[in-house]
Write a protein that binds this DNA or RNA. Structure first.
Lengths: 348, 348
DNA sequence: CTAGATATCCAAAACGTTTTGCACAACCGG
DNA sequence: CCGGTTGTGCAAAACGTTTTGGATATCTAG
């Protein structure tokens, strides 16, 4: 141990904080009375109350919320389970969830899983051990879906932007992916585009499928579909391949999310094509980088914040009454952000 | 209430879960024995143990962590206080904090404050009420600094990337801002730049001051300084103003963070200047959009993840032993990411 | 003066664990 | 046969609250 740390390192273990008994003793009353003074649950003589309050201040007494929770049977804390907080979508969602929780006096435990099933399990354990009063679950790993189903009827759980099929009987809040797809389809159609390349995500993800479905429905023109994985690299690869084969015979690209759109942009840029001069590109999500890019990306704004906020607010409505939420679906509106990456189809 | 909801809405209140007493009664042993079987704290006859375990499974018994915590005097949960989780820097930091907490079996409560002092207070209350065992504090609102100081000696608190002055005596983990500034300065100098515009943030923020100091020291050339607020708009405004006055007589711009760099880029772009052809631009932070932009931004990568992880890991080292951490500083290395927005100074 | 209302406070139980001291039996070596 | 060890399990206390049913004293109305 370095000498100059000696002074600081002498830090003693945290000393026992004052309990309600200490306050009671110092004020010459019973713990019951202290509790009543602090909670206002029953009337207390004003002189006595004043004395108690003064002792509370002097001792710096703060009730132990653990004991309170144990007695109350609930902790006023819920969990938020997401795969990756560094993804801006989930970060926004988390912000909405935190806001909703805070508004109702709840704390929020961040359960970041990286799609790791063990990690998810450990966090789901918190709800079984009743350390948290409920859980907002946003798109976890497929293997844990079954476990989730088992929990659903017995514990308060809400799904935010569910991506996985088969989770019926739940409280669900999600964006209107299909409408988003339709917006892009109609937009490109109005610009005169008739042939489009559509880059989708894995088919197992419902939201992606809905986006594609809406797009095809509203675009009405010819649509070539390529399946990617929602990552930037796959958008690049898909477009580059088509380019190399000389088979990119369309005037517009609809990427299932912004990251893939960026990948596509990169491939087009490398091929010497101009966006939106030669070809238009649209994305989905409206992540931060979308408006910062050159050209700024036309995309569909997902109300990630609202999804998190709604799922949480709805969940808490039941949790606060000690109930398990019934099945219900809350679909949130989506908004088309027309920016610089889309333009009228070039005359052919 | 709509009829089709009737079935679902009939959800009964959550029924009382099995307690250790229920298990003990069903297995014909005392609660003590059940506890010992589950914790392994003391040996138990194998036949008895097997019987207990079978009852545990049958009843689906999970120990109430609240009661356990009350008895243990700690909750194995800490808080992470940040201003804005939707800011990618803090999201990365949060990810690091969550990882570190998870590794040591701790939960992490997300305290998003929006710089709101009341909100900060409420969250700091969690530590006083001992619902959390410690707090990682990242750059809160100035008004709550005093309150924080009062808490610091008594409760386990760690500072992550402290921006505010005067918080001595704390456990601090932060990036090496000064070294980052030096890296940029040296880089631009090597490229032959001799006159640079430096866009800084508010002087009250230590990290920004350090960046600027390092830059000036290593650049050695002429530096014009303009004070912004770390937001995109201010970068745009500062550069646009100089441009309008025709006084932008430099070959390089060092923005105190990436957002301001983007603002600067926008202003230069509008003025018809080419980056990096006419002028080089460098940022700080390496946010997601930096590599996605055109041209991709040369910037300093801040180890946000490591800052969060280190602060948390260090804090927990003491928390787990029931100690208040001593003052210490952990400075994390920073990395220059040379990308497309900087190039040799144009011949004049 | 008395029956009932009111004001004030307290004792005890309950929330669900873990920990610790002890009791009892069985076994061992001498 | 005896002192000591080992194996096994229980009772009770403790963690720090809130809640509830009284108890006691004082007041009010008739």
């Amino acid at each position: 141990m370095r000498p100059e740390q000696y002074g600081a390192a002498r830090q003693s273990p945290v000393r026992r904080p004052a309990s309600i008994k200490d306050v009671a003793a110092a004020a010459g009353v019973s713990p019951t009375t202290v509790s009543h003074v602090l909670s206002g649950n029953r009337p207390v003589n004003e002189d006595t109350a004043a004395r108690v309050r003064s002792v509370v201040n002097r001792l710096g007494y703060v009730p132990a919320s653990l004991a309170r929770s144990l007695q109350a049977g609930s902790t006023s804390v819920i969990g938020l389970l997401i795969p990756d907080i560094s993804n801006t979508f989930f970060a926004e969602l988390a912000k909405g969830a935190e806001d909703a929780a805070h508004d109702l006096g709840y704390g929020l435990i961040l359960c970041n899983t990286e799609f790791d099933a063990d990690r998810e399990d450990r966090y789901l354990g918190m709800i079984r051990s009743r350390f948290i009063d409920g859980m907002v679950y946003a798109s976890g790993s497929p293997p844990s879906r079954r476990r989730l189903e088992a929990l659903m009827g017995k514990f308060p759980i809400a799904l935010a932007d569910e991506e996985v099929e088969g989770l019926e009987g739940a409280l669900i809040a999600s964006a209107d992916h299909e409408a988003g797809g339709r917006l892009v389809g109609a937009h490109l159609r109005e610009l005169g585009h008739r042939r489009a390349l559509m880059l989708t995500g894995p088919r197992a993800l419902k939201s992606g499928v809905a986006r594609a479905g809406g797009f095809v429905q509203a675009f009405k023109g010819e649509v070539v579909e390529r399946v990617g994985d929602f990552k930037e690299a796959s958008g690049y690869r898909l477009v580059a391949e088509l380019l190399k084969e000389g088979r990119l015979d369309c005037t517009a690209v609809f990427a299932g999310n912004d990251l893939m759109a960026f990948g596509a942009l990169e491939a087009l840029w490398e091929a010497g094509l101009s966006v939106p001069g030669d070809i238009s590109v649209a994305g989905f999500d409206d992540i931060r980088a979308a408006s910062l890019a050159h050209p700024p990306l036309t995309t569909v704004h997902q109300p990630a914040y609202d999804v998190g906020r709604t799922a949480t607010a709805q969940l808490l409505q039941y949790v606060s009454r000690g109930e398990v939420p019934p099945a219900s679906r809350h679909t949130l509106p989506v908004e088309l952000k027309v920016r610089g990456s889309t333009a009228p189809a070039a005359a052919r």
